[in-house]
Write a protein that binds this DNA or RNA. Structure first.
Lengths: 115, 115
DNA sequence: CAACTATATGCATATCCATATATATACCAT
DNA sequence: ATGGTATATATATGGATATGCATATAGTTG
């Protein structure tokens, strides 16, 4: 379940906003794709994902050694709407696009054949 | 002008969300009304208002000794939309209503005659 | 000028939080 | 079992920030 204080805490960090924007755009991504796209360290990304999972924003699916994150389907409408506005509005869109572009050129992405 | 990092920083604090919800509801409020409604100290509220003013969310109008705060008219649409969703969605609405109720019973509010 | 009110700010402190590094866990293959 | 890959976590640390208390500023009135 979503905790409102935790929800807005999540949005206050730029790394988490970048991760959310990517996941929103792609639907589902694994940790390796996320920290590759952001050019960040694996522990850093993993920790931020844990924060968002515990806050109720993300849900997890394990497939072999890979762990895939997506938006939690139980997210209230108002929260999902805020995430959409966050990802599409304002001056930070270029940064998000840069992340998406880097993800697009990532070699050996998992599951790319089946999606 | 609005700084995006500062914008989401603003939303991560519950006191600031309460202040924003009240201002959104009433249009314009002075500092004394705000810290009365929230039952918070005057320096605390003044500090938070300064943060929001410097972030580009609020604009200020002075009238005698009173200082009135309102939403900055230059706020981008996506930011205003997020504020609206924040103020109306979810489990924190009762808290906001409590603040509004307390404001409604405040004695000797400034300018109540002309609004 | 002085006194009063409303608001802002300086300072000290405590707490939270993001990050780096290192290490642990989980899963798969051989 | 061993080795390899993907992910999570433990610990330490520096930095940001919310808050209380005291004080300063700005405006009004006498």
């Amino acid at each position: 379940m979503l905790h409102e204080q935790a929800f807005f805490n999540v949005l206050s960090d730029e790394t988490r906003r970048r991760l959310l924007a990517l996941i929103l755009r792609e639907g589902e991504l694994c940790v390796c794709e996320l920290f590759y796209a952001l050019e960040a360290s694996q522990p850093k990304v993993s920790r931020h994902l844990a924060v968002m999972r515990e806050a109720g924003l993300l849900s997890v699916r394990r497939e072999g050694t890979w762990v895939f994150y997506r938006l939690d389907a139980r997210l209230p409408q108002w929260a999902a709407d805020i995430l959409g506005l966050m990802a599409q509005g304002g001056a930070r869109v270029p940064l998000f696009q840069r992340d998406a572009q880097r993800l697009a050129v990532m070699p050996e992405r998992p599951m790319t054949c089946c999606r």
